Simulated scan of single mutants.
Amino acid sequence: MRRWTLPLLLAAIGLAVAVRQADEGSPVAAAVWSAVFLVLAAGLSPLAFPRSVGAAEARRRSADDGRPIIYWRPGCQYCLRLRLRLGRAARRAHWVDIWRDPEGAAEVRAITGGAETVPTVVVSGRSQVNPDPAWLRRRLK
């Protein structure tokens, strides 16, 4: 449920702002504010990311096809930035949501020295925390 906390909170705030604007006689402002908050909520939700797999499955798949593993969590602005900059190439990576997979969270902690810093990317056994999107895009081709 915590994966959806921030998106639902943003949607609720957007609704409250829209209702207030509509009550004050500004239906256009109400529509604009609700659209802004809904876009933010959608962007920070798990829906903006490719389907996640477990850490063990991601390691197995990566060993088979050589594609990177990206550890992420919903609501992370750096994960969203990486996802948006990768564009359609993001679907070629194996994504692991550390909030859904305790084993993935443990792997990130092992890589980062105890922190759950994401995005953390593993390519061919080498890890990088918050990588440059251009660097990762080259490895996804």
Rank of each mutant, 00 (worst) to 15 (best):
L15K: 08
A41F: 11
E57N: 08
R67P: 00
R2K: 07
V32L: 13
R67Q: 11
L140T: 11
L8Y: 07
P74I: 07
N130G: 09
R60E: 08
V39D: 12
H94L: 02
W33E: 06
G125A: 09
R92Y: 03
V123N: 11
S62E: 01
G75R: 08
A63Q: 10
A11G: 10
F49D: 07
A48V: 06
L140G: 12
L47G: 00
W99Y: 12
G25V: 12
R60G: 14
A56N: 03
P74W: 04
R85H: 10
I13W: 09
D65R: 05
R138T: 14
H94M: 08
D132L: 07
Q128L: 13
T120A: 05
P131D: 00
A115V: 11
D101V: 11
L44A: 03
W99S: 10
A35Y: 03
Q128Y: 01
Q128T: 15
I69R: 06
T117R: 12
R83D: 01
G113S: 12
A90Y: 00
L9Q: 06
D23T: 09
L15N: 04
A35R: 07
V129T: 12
R139T: 00
V108E: 04
W4N: 12
G75D: 03
V39N: 09
S52L: 01
V17E: 08
R83H: 05
A63M: 03
R100H: 10
I98N: 05
L136Y: 04
L40H: 03
L80E: 07
S45L: 09
L38D: 01
H94Q: 06
V129G: 06
V96W: 00
W4T: 03
R83G: 03
R51G: 11
E107T: 05
A63S: 09
L80C: 08
P68S: 04
A110I: 10
G125W: 04
G43F: 09
S127D: 07
T117L: 15
T112F: 07
L6R: 10
W99C: 02
V118G: 02
R88T: 10
L80K: 12
V123W: 13
R61D: 01
E57I: 00
Q128N: 05
R126Q: 13
W4R: 12
V121P: 04
P133F: 00
V19P: 02
R92L: 09
G54E: 06
A115N: 12
G54F: 01
G66C: 04
A93D: 03
A90T: 03
V122N: 06
S124E: 15
A31R: 11
Q77I: 10
Y78R: 13
A12Q: 05
L9S: 11
A18Q: 04
V53D: 07
G104A: 02
V123K: 14
L140S: 10
P133C: 04
A35F: 07
S52F: 00
V122D: 05
V39C: 12
L80F: 10
S127R: 01
G25K: 13
P131K: 05
P7S: 05
T5I: 14
W33A: 13
W95H: 07
A58K: 04
V28P: 11
G114T: 08
N130C: 13
T112P: 11
W95V: 06
